[in-house]
């Protein structure tokens, strides 16, 4: 008999440690390159701040970092969570009611072609200023990939597998819970990963268009005074928020989706 592929646990841990070390080192190298570029090139701070100057911007109490981070985080996570709930919900309805999918899916595809950013001014008219419209923007921009991938995943069922369940007179609910939904999970996660990146962009664009709080709003404020260091810091913090969200989704995927099935 053919032996299964052997995976040594110990070697895997060693590989991972090496991988993480290299990743950390390459990030540190980038910061070092940045530092030396500024120092050796005598670049003025208002054009590009050094890593140190960027960190220093955190000490300006006027910028109310904590509050602005919280606001942006709420917008990103709120919009994203809403998109997951509504997106997966709609895809489930599509798979249960074929007529609904046939009528609504073409409509969704058309709506998806609208550049969501163009809706910004409208969203402000409808929801006024504040966190609400930015949550809406994050939602609008990351909702479609989740619907599309989930719907696709629910559709991808082996016909022979359906036959197998039918010979056992299995119910539609059994097909759904035992085959369709777990089979769609890798697709759902691939949509969620794309959406995680888009949610961050959506929230920031929302803040650019009209807002009185948040990291995007702060960037516009300090632009006036040419505090480039604060702008750099804001960008880094936005990126970190995105990485936290993405990392969380990735960890959840590892927990729920078998390695072989991940897309």
């Amino acid at each position: 008999m053919i032996a299964p592929t052997i995976r040594s646990g110990e070697r895997l841990v060693g590989d991972n440690l090496q991988r993480y070390t290299i990743a950390v080192l390459s990030h540190l190298a980038l910061v070092a390159a940045w530092h030396f570029f500024i120092v050796l090139g005598k670049v003025p701070t208002f054009v590009m701040p050094s890593p140190y100057a960027t960190l220093h911007a955190l000490l300006v109490p006027n910028y109310r970092w904590i509050e602005n981070i919280s606001v942006t985080a709420i917008e990103i996570f709120g919009g994203y969570f809403l998109a997951i709930v509504v997106g997966i919900g709609i895809a489930l309805l599509f798979s249960w009611f074929r007529v609904l999918e046939m009528t609504m899916m073409p409509l969704l595809v058309t709506l998806n072609m609208i550049p969501k950013v163009a809706l910004g001014p409208l969203i402000i008219v409808w929801f006024s200023y504040g966190i609400g419209p930015n949550v809406a923007m994050a939602f609008a921009i990351c909702f479609f990939p989740i619907v599309l991938t989930t719907a696709r995943g629910l559709r991808e069922v082996e016909p022979d597998l359906l036959d197998l369940v039918r010979t056992l007179k299995g119910s539609r609910w059994q097909i759904f819970t035992k085959i369709q939904l777990p089979g769609a999970l890798p697709y759902i996660f691939s949509g969620m990963k794309v959406a995680a990146i888009l949610a961050v962009a959506g929230a920031i664009v929302g803040e650019f268009l009209g807002s009185d709080r948040g990291l995007g709003y702060l960037m516009l404020q300090v632009q006036v005074t040419l505090d480039t260091a604060a702008m750099f810091m804001a960008v880094i913090l936005i990126t970190l928020l995105g990485m936290i969200l993405y990392g969380f989704v990735l960890a959840l995927e590892r927990l729920l989706v078998v390695r072989d099935a991940r897309i």
Binding site: V257, D260, A261
Partner: peptide
Amino acid sequence: VFQQPLLLKW
């Protein structure tokens, strides 16, 4: 039993 094993990956 089919040509493909059709085991559920998860």
